[in-house]
Design a protein around this nucleic acid. Structure first.
Length: 1039
RNA sequence: GCGCGGUUAGCUCAGUUGGCAGAGCACUACCUCGACACGGUAGGGGUCACAAGUUCAAGUCUUGUACCGCGCACCA
């Protein structure tokens, strides 16, 4: 840092250090290094969409993860932050399909065919897949890139298949014809979680269904009225239902009405599901297009008439006029026709919720189709392991991702961690938790949401009618009874059952020895049956394909692969019995923390927990940190269509990655949504600049006392560097403030309160260090010898200046050196405290300031990344340097007097740059140094120390415990102005006194209040009384 | 309908076990004084949504109300 630019220039710094970290393998995790002394810390990235772009949401999320990872490294842990990407089935397929359509290459993906289309998706993935990873690197993410994973890597795919087969064998996966949520735009089934309920203003149409006479003709005056929000579905009605207990309709049950337009007689049935209080109490029943109606249809054995096809258009069954018509257009037409026929009784405005596909943003269609479902595994354990916010629960993290401040302060042991070497700690930390380890959510209120969902869990529709994804590992072939193939592969039929039923087969190739799979077959007719084989064995698959079996065309829900992320990325083989876990799994699973958005609590978090228990027999993470959602200044969600989402890369280019990180973290309190404002990033930039310049100032003050060696070394080794005898009250004050900051920040970490940590750092560094300490230090650093001598002769009383009496050049040098040592001590600690938040600038300064040179290679010598996290100052240290808490008050009172003096300047309109003289009448002994500091901070020409000062009438004065500070305005005294000022002051004092006194006067107060509070109030009373007395005296002096 | 957040300075938000209402931005005035104008100094600005209760004491605890946001479940 020989040439120091006036302003921090992040662009030149960031790439340099990121490359350095990569080259030095600073991010790689080695399970072999994990030991009781070096516990593991791990975190898996929520894999972003492989072809996605970095959003502000990613910035927030990954900054937090990076902060946790970097802090853990400084705590001496072996850190694995495992990165990767998700194939994101629907999203990616849709993007590629759209792009190809736009380019005019295809009208529909069928034009290319599955194989060719998939080639294009892979090509797209290759082209765009690296972008988001590069963007994360720009942000400073310290992921172990050697372990980057993709959910469609071959090994990962094998895990997915293995899991499918295993769950199938356990009977948890099954295939069935069900009413599912159908996305007519994407042409696929969706899970319940992928459906968004949106409130819409719609209508309730009341329709007459006439009874029929003996000739099958509609009766003109006898009818029932049904109400519906979806008139187009009436084309597929198969009944009208009433409640069996509804006296209005019981006698109608069994009769028939004529379904209008279709002119089809349909029965009136009775079913409990009908709410007699709603509408007319009569419900039209459309078995194929409404889940509730389907239920009734099954009970009453009604035909399943399909009038809306998978593309959202009406089918031929709907009738000639409707065929191929879009469902919304069909609705119009139905209304028209009913109106013509006089069957529309009324139209009511009606607000109701409509299910929308979260992906395609079109209304979903209940659709009857054959799909694969999963009964969730390990539900009980998964539900029980999450700590619900009960009383007495400690807010501290589980698995110790960050040590409590107590630990850091008083223990030299490396931080403890859950898992490998302290696996029982997590459970021990949860009193009465039984055998189950506990997981904690931050903020905890999400646990309730989770618990509620887990308690009402429904089977998961896992099949998707897409091409991009993990294909379902199921093969089928229609075969004849006595098919020769059966001979060849030596299928042994366990037992025979009736046609149409299912049977278990054991599948054993002739040579024998290959795995057992569970299979099914279905009779199609007397001669033919379809054999279905579920397997993940490559050998079996090969054989099946040779025999002409075809694989199920569907793919699995993306989340069916993501839910394995915490262990499938660590080399899981699925072979639990042989304990074949990889060293990575053994060292880093379960992971310590998960950082994610609450919007995927069901999609991902809950499912990972269940998969963890089911396949690893252990929870996947100890703590889950839920970020807020990033919104724009108006509180709207960030979205591409609104164009309100800034490109983080632009922000990094403009302000620097550190600025973006700091600004984001400062405005992101735990558990609250974040309103993004570029001003936050600007604040971060300004802060980096402040940090930069504070270090620049240090550099400009000359070389460090003893090659700067004092800086980074742990407190015990620093004793030769800072001379306790030479410490000023300012030095002691800032060291005590540093100590407090270390405690506060470490505590904030333990509670995942990153915005608190940044706020504390900001306040400490800017307000305390820069505004007070650095300015005060100039009294030593920028003084010439002569000036010092002069100020001493005029100011200090001899008795208080013992260490100044023999003032010599050497003395001044020693004092300067000591101040620099204190500065180095503070800065080297501060840089480390900042490093998790501001990785780039702190690394640059760490080296530039020479602090790296003084540290052992693996303790910060190579990089600040591995420098030890600052410990708060222990009692020995404080004792040795005389850091008594009284210095907080001593120096504090001095600064307070300065503020009062500045205030005075301001009130008497003395320009900021005008040097004037003050007179200080000290209340007691005051070191010359302190007088010098007061003079400097007041920007005064001089501060005359005069214990017997007799001010001319009307001389403005302020005072506190330090003494009385006068502003002699030689001949310019405006008695009236001072009178006005003091009168105001008196009024204020009296008002405050009134407040305190009324409390103290209350007899109950003295009796019931705790002693410390009482004392506080009495002290406050005394203070205001003193102030009042001074003001009154001054006022009286004016005459 | 059930549940969860939120309501504090013009804006965005902190506010620990109840004990003197805070920060950043914005605003006003002065200041380029040997780190920094991406800066310094000082200042103005609040009926803590409303109502009742508990308490010596309520932004903080209890109950209720209003409004904003979110989630879950829904009867056509």
């Amino acid at each position: 840092m020989s040439e120091i630019p006036k302003a921090y220039e992040p662009q030149s710094v960031e790439d340099k250090w990121y490359d350095f970290w990569l080259k030095q393998n600073c991010f790689t995790a080695d399970p072999a290094r994990v030991s009781p002394k070096r516990p593991a810390y791990s975190i898996v990235i929520p894999p972003p969409n492989v072809t996605g772009m970095l959003t502000m949401g990613h910035v927030l999320n990954n900054t937090i993860q990076d902060i946790l990872a970097r802090k853990a490294r400084m705590d001496g842990k072996e850190v694995l932050w495992l990165p990767g990407t998700d194939h994101a089935g629907i999203a990616t397929q849709t993007v590629v399909e759209k792009t190809l359509k736009k380019a005019g290459e295809i009208k529909h993906r069928d034009d290319l065919g599955r194989e060719k289309f998939l080639e294009r998706v892979w090509a797209w993935k290759e082209k765009h897949g690296g972008i988001i990873i590069q963007q994360l690197k720009k942000l400073g993410a310290s992921c172990d890139w050697t372990r980057e994973r993709f959910t469609m890597d071959p090994e990962y795919s094998r895990c997915v298949q293995k899991v499918f087969v295993e769950l199938y064998k356990k009977g948890l996966i099954y295939r069935g014809k069900r009413m599912v949520n159908w996305d007519p735009a994407a042409h696929t089934a969706l899970s319940d979680e992928e459906v968004e309920m949106i409130e819409e203003k719609g209508h309730l149409w009341h329709i007459k269904y006439p009874f029929i006479d003996d000739q099958g003709k509609p009766k003109a005056d006898e009818f029932v009225v049904v109400a519906t929000t979806r008139p187009e579905t009436m084309l597929g009605d198969e009944a009208v239902a009433v409640n069996p207990k509804d006296p209005r309709y019981t006698k109608l049950v069994g009769k028939k009405v004529l379904l209008p337009i279709q002119n089809k007689p349909i029965p009136i049935i009775a079913d409990e599901l009908v709410d007699p209080k709603f509408g007319t109490g009569c419900v039209k029943v459309t078995p194929s297009h409404d889940p509730a109606d389907y239920e009734m249809a099954v009970r009453h054995k009604l035909p399943l008439t399909v009038v809306i096809g998978p593309d959202g258009r009406m089918t031929a069954v709907a009738g000639k006029d409707f065929e191929r018509l879009d469902r919304m257009k069909a609705r119009q037409l139905v209304i028209e026709k009913l109106t013509e026929q006089g069957l529309l009784v009324k139209i009511e405005d009606y607000v109701h919720n409509v299910g929308y596909s979260q992906r395609s943003h079109v209304p979903i269609e209940p659709y009857l189709s054959e799909q694969w479902f999963l009964k969730y595994p390990s539900v009980e354990k998964s539900r029980a392991c999450v700590e619900l916010g009960s009383a007495g629960a400690s807010p501290a993290a589980v698995g110790a991702p960050a040590d409590s401040s107590e630990d850091v302060a008083n223990s030299s042991e490396p931080g403890k961690s859950g898992r490998l070497f302290a696996a029982d700690e997590a459970s021990a930390a949860a009193p009465g938790a039984g055998a189950l380890p506990k997981m904690r959510f931050h903020p905890q209120r999400w646990a309730k949401v989770y618990d509620h969902w887990m308690g009402n869990i429904k089977d998961w529709c896992i099949s998707r009618q897409l091409w991009w994804g993990h294909r379902i590992p199921v093969w089928r072939k229609v075969m004849k009874r006595n098919d020769p193939v059966m001979e060849t592969i030596d299928l042994t039929v366990g037992h025979t059952i009736d046609k149409g039923g299912l049977v278990e087969l054991s599948f054993a190739p002739k040579e024998g020895g290959v795995s057992y799979s569970r299979n099914e077959y279905k009779w199609i007719d007397d001669e033919h049956f379809e054999l279905e084989i579920i397997t993940d064995s490559p050998a079996e698959i090969k054989m099946l394909e040779d025999f002409g079996f075809t694989q199920d065309p569907d793919v699995l829900d993306t989340w069916f692969s993501s839910w394995l992320w915490p262990f499938a990325t660590m080399g899981w083989t699925g072979d639990k019995s042989q304990d074949s876990n990889t060293p990575t799994l053994r060292a880093f699973y379960p992971t310590t923390d998960l950082v994610t958005g609450p919007d995927i609590i069901f999609f991902w978090v809950a499912r990972m927990i269940m998969a963890g228990y089911e396949f690893m027999d252990d929870l996947p993470f100890h703590n889950v940190y839920f970020t807020g959602i990033i919104r724009d200044k108006q509180g709207r969600k960030m979205s591409k269509s609104l164009g309100n989402s800034p490109d983080p890369l632009d922000l990094i280019a403009k302000y620097g990655a550190d600025a973006l990180r700091f600004g984001t973290m400062r405005s992101a309190p735990l558990g609250q949504d974040i309103l993004f404002d570029e001003q936050n990033v600007e604040l971060g930039r300004n802060f980096c600049n402040k940090l930069w310049n504070a270090c620049r100032f240090r550099q400009m003050m000359g070389s460090a006392p003893v090659s700067g060696a004092s800086a980074g070394v742990p407190p015990a080794e620093i004793q030769g560097e800072i001379d306790p005898k030479l410490l000023t009250s300012d030095d002691k004050w800032i060291l005590l403030k540093l100590d407090q900051a270390i405690r506060d920040i470490t505590e904030a970490f333990a509670e995942y309160k990153f915005s608190d940590a940044t706020a504390t750092l900001y306040r400490f560094f800017w307000s305390e260090y820069c505004d007070w300490y650095v300015e005060a230090s100039k009294a030593v650093l920028v003084k010439s010898v002569t000036e010092l001598n002069m100020s001493n002769e005029s100011g200090a009383t001899p008795s208080n200046a013992t260490h100044l009496t023999n003032r010599s050049f050497n003395d001044l040098t020693a004092r300067k050196a000591n101040t620099l040592a204190v500065i180095d001590f503070v800065l080297s600690h501060t840089l480390r405290l900042f490093h998790p938040f501001l990785p780039f600038i702190t690394e640059e300064l760490w080296h530039g300031m020479g602090y790296a040179d003084d540290m052992p290679e693996n303790q910060g010598g190579k990089t600040i990344m591995t420098a030890p996290w600052p410990k708060s100052l222990d009692d020995d240290f404080k004792g040795h340097y005389g850091l008594d808490d009284c210095y907080l008050d001593l120096a504090g009172a001095k600064y307070d007097l300065v503020t009062l003096g500045r205030n005075l300047r301001r009130e008497f309109n003395i320009q900021a740059n005008k040097k004037i003289k003050f007179v200080l009448k000290p209340a007691g002994n005051i070191p010359a140094h302190d007088v010098e500091v007061i003079k400097l901070l007041l920007n005064a020409e001089a501060v005359e120390l005069d214990a017997g000062y007799a001010p001319p009438k009307g001389t403005p004065m302020v005072a506190n415990s330090v003494g009385e500070l006068y502003l002699p305005l030689a001949g310019l005294v405006d008695v009236a102005a001072e009178k006005a000022r003091l009168t105001k002051e008196v009024a204020k004092c009296e008002a405050e006194l009134e407040k305190v006194q009324s409390k103290l006067n209350n007899p109950n107060f003295a009796q019931k209040v705790p002693p410390n509070v009482l004392q506080e109030h009495q002290q406050r009373l005394a203070e205001w009384q003193a102030k009042l007395a001074r003001a009154k005296a001054a006022l009286a002096g004016l005459g």
